[in-house]
Design a protein around this nucleic acid. Sequence first.
DNA 1: TTTACTGCAAATATTTTGCAATATC
DNA 2: GATATTGCAAAATATTTGCAGTAAA
Lengths: 167, 167
Amino acid sequence: MLVDDLHLLVVRDKDSDKVVEQIFTEYLNSKGHRKTPERYAILDTVYSINGHFDIDSLYSIMKEEGKFSVSRATLYNTITLLIDAQLVIRHQFGNSSQYEKTYDRSIHHHLICTKCGKIIEQKNKQLQKEIEAAEFSKFKVSHYSLYVYGLCEKCIKGNKHNKKQTQ
Amino acid sequence: MLVDDLHLLVVRDKDSDKVVEQIFTEYLNSKGHRKTPERYAILDTVYSINGHFDIDSLYSIMKEEGKFSVSRATLYNTITLLIDAQLVIRHQFGNSSQYEKTYDRSIHHHLICTKCGKIIEQKNKQLQKEIEAAEFSKFKVSHYSLYVYGLCEKCIKGNKHNKKQTQ
DNA sequence: TTTACTGCAAATATTTTGCAATATC
DNA sequence: GATATTGCAAAATATTTGCAGTAAA
């Protein structure tokens, strides 16, 4: 039964990859953009990453892991397309942009420690519903980001050795 | 009566300036930092600005308006202190950081148009209360930012001439 | 065949850092 | 007087752009 569950999970992942590819294909078609192997390789890598990543780590992953390697310029171009296609969202916590996939990943909020820079993802269905229910007149909402600033558990306890992360 | 109201308003502004200065002084003392004229001139200018500003516009305002002029390096240093003192918050909408004063300025959310880049400040007391009421275990909240992405009124109407702003 | 896309390198923009001079404590 | 802070310039970092070659349509 456990094996079956695992199997289901894997199958589900593959299915979701296909769905995501199809969404991207439809997006590219609708905009008259070309369907290049670079773009699909980037989509594939982006969707293999759980959590945040920046352009530089995406570049490294594609270069070092024997995957289809592309230039930074292409990464910047393609990530813009993925954002426009609503398959990726961008965060700007520190100095560089951080990205994360959106499809098949549940909505969460971000707790940001102002002392050590740690970012904690936290789900809160109740709050999520309240924000989604909010009315903003004359504005067509597509998505939102909630960043909550404060002190993480370690820093509350006054660990003075916590260094601020650059990322 | 109108004149009195205006007078009251001005007095109130002066009062709040004094309060802000005092908060900053207490912060500097508590951290053992020096109380330099540059720091107070920056605080003063920051609090004269309603809305967002970046380091470059702060630099220009201080240089061109005959105020105490300081270097960019000092602006970066001091803004960090003001953030730590909770007198300023930072946003990172586009590529450069945007700042805004916090004291004596009511809480608002940010609606960001994904097409033209326009940023609309919007108050929503109900939503504000709900977010403030949310519990985040093992995290001591100081403040939060809610960014709502979507299309502004103009862009909903399909004005294709709206250009994406760099800011 | 046309021209959008890619990769490279150069350019731009933003922020940080090293260091000598200065001013606070 | 000791040293934190400032201003300047250089360095580091992130992102954009121009252009020639390549490949999708």
